[in-house]
Write a protein that binds this DNA or RNA. Structure first.
Lengths: 328, 328
DNA sequence: CTGTTAGCGCATTCAA
DNA sequence: TTGAATGCGCTAACAG
């Protein structure tokens, strides 16, 4: 069996309360006693049992992170920013994959509640957030990252997608491009909807007609990028420029173009969301919208810490981070 | 305050022991009592407190995962395979970033021990594994993934790197390529060393001289891939084929080639480890070594479950998974 | 500054 | 089949 406070207390010839005080850096304790206890802890190789501590304090110093897909660089870079920030506060993170499925998301939430986590950061799997209520009902603060949901209002860290999208379009238009194809995401997801709005608003502001034949909607996965680019290229009058609103669709679209070099009559140029990993190396890409992934994570973490520590901040706390624009 | 067994017991008119038995599916309990308790739990919206339970049972159903870098697709795809498998057994995973630093790794381990995790899966940050001993000393099983370390022997799931490397080389050689440049990783890391051995062995077996001027060592990061490709291309007699042993160096090398299209006299072709994300879309790439990332994770998880459940398996349990070869 | 005591929520002996 | 009692390891009143 492991060494407990009791063992240390006996070894040091003090009470368990004193040992506990030393562990928790209580000031009202003499230097000699502290030294004595510390020495005993060292000698016995004592390690606190955080389970027991949590049972008393009702704090686990553990945060749940639920995201739709683990092997996604956007999510994981966000997670990195988050983990890095939380660690400064002594928190750990339990990672959960919702598999882009609201039911699984709900299931993870139930488990996390039972594990008595102190807070949760979620990248929602869908636009349904009704099951998040069980968290707030239990008094567990929830911070959303990247996306909002219907029917649940809480803190969130988002990207100013509309303006990011608008700026990219504006840049292209100022370069003299007028006809810009579009591959967007599922409009049920807020970022997809917002990027769509930026696209349309830019067209409108610059008096460019919206052509539904060159506007396609995928699902933020590579396959749909491939398919939608194919549709665009098979149009009788394909656009020479395509704006794609996510990394994986960008990859899929590039794949299509590489495989069909001969079939595609005119050269295509791509502008895309997400400056991740190899995005800038993709052959057709000239413009990238760079999302502040690390910062989304660290900000979400910071808000959560504020909530947990009962800081007096307004509710809901919504951040809209700015994206950058990159040219090749 | 949350609902406890006591509340349920009172509501159902039974003892807490009975409630506990219902929760744990104890057989020796009458159907009527069980129904009564279940109903009370439902009505009061009772949720077990796993902290309290863990304190009694000494099991947290939580696994620690320590890896050198979170925003790395290889690591996270591995994590996905792992998480997916562990979930079937009712386990959650606490994710820790060691930042490719043995000291930070050590620090994470200390925290995890205090959290009373049931087991640990580690992608080692360095070749130093001496600090893993504190885990085994505490009775916590450790499974290594992807890499081995010096001075600590335990279960591990690895890739048969030597043969993977050898096969890729063999394929090239059979295609008639004889002069193959090489960009490898830090030889202190086992996979880098093994891939290096595969390269050299293939040259040797096919009677091709080893030319140290076209063999470079980086650190598995994009920047070093860039630099090493630059060195290769600035050689007075650059190779027409380059074998690169990791995804990020492949990306960096590609970046160099794209930026220096004019300077590079002869076209270069690349063979590389890792069929991840956009690897196959990179312009100079013709051959890819595909590592079974998900399986590394799920196997590591399975071994850990066996250890935790005290299954009678040999020690250490080492798996060497085969890599695949892909051509474009 | 330090010790005594109680109890966090649950599982588990031992009795009945 | 059920209940009463105990303790997991720790923290936090309260006393001194």
């Amino acid at each position: 069996m492991a060494v407990t406070v009791k063992d240390v207390a006996k070894h040091a010839g003090v009470s368990t309360a004193t040992v506990s005080r030393v562990i928790n850096n209580d000031v009202r304790i003499s230097d000699v006693t502290r030294a004595k206890v510390l020495e005993s802890m060292e000698e016995l190789d004592y390690k606190v049992n955080n389970i027991a501590r949590s049972l008393k304090t009702n704090k686990t110093y553990t945060i749940g992170f639920i995201c739709p897909e683990l092997s996604n660089t956007f999510n994981m870079t966000l997670a990195k920013g988050m983990e890095d920030e939380l660690r400064r506060f002594g928190y750990n993170v339990i990672i959960c994959n919702s598999n882009e499925n609201a039911d699984e998301e709900n299931e993870r939430i139930r488990v996390l509640i039972q594990k008595c986590i102190d807070g949760v950061i979620i990248i929602p799997a869908s636009n349904n957030g009704s099951h998040f209520k069980q968290l707030s009902d239990t008094g567990i603060p929830v911070v959303l990252a990247d996306r909002l949901v219907d029917d649940f209002i809480t803190d969130a860290v988002l990207v100013d997608n509309i303006n990011a999208s608008y700026s990219a379009m504006e840049y292209l238009i100022r370069q003299g491009v007028r006809r810009i194809g579009y591959i967007g995401g599922d409009l049920k997801i807020t970022p997809a909807r917002e990027r769509d709005e930026g696209y349309r608003r830019a067209l409108n502001d610059y008096c460019i007609p919206f052509e539904s034949s060159i506007v396609k909607y995928g699902d933020f996965h590579a396959r749909s990028g491939y398919e939608k680019m194919e549709e665009l290229m098979k149009d009788e009058n394909p656009p020479g420029y395509v704006f794609i609103t996510n990394y994986y669709m960008h990859a899929g679209a590039t794949k299509y173009l590489m495989e069909h070099r001969k079939d595609v009559k005119n050269p295509v140029t791509i502008a895309s969301f997400d400056d991740m990993e190899l995005a800038s190396l993709l052959g057709y890409c000239k413009v990238l919208v760079s999302q502040p992934m690390l910062e989304i994570g660290s900000r979400a973490a910071k808000i959560l810490m504020d909530r947990i520590n009962g800081e007096d901040i307004s509710f809901p706390m919504i951040y809209r981070l700015k994206a950058g624009l990159l040219f090749k």
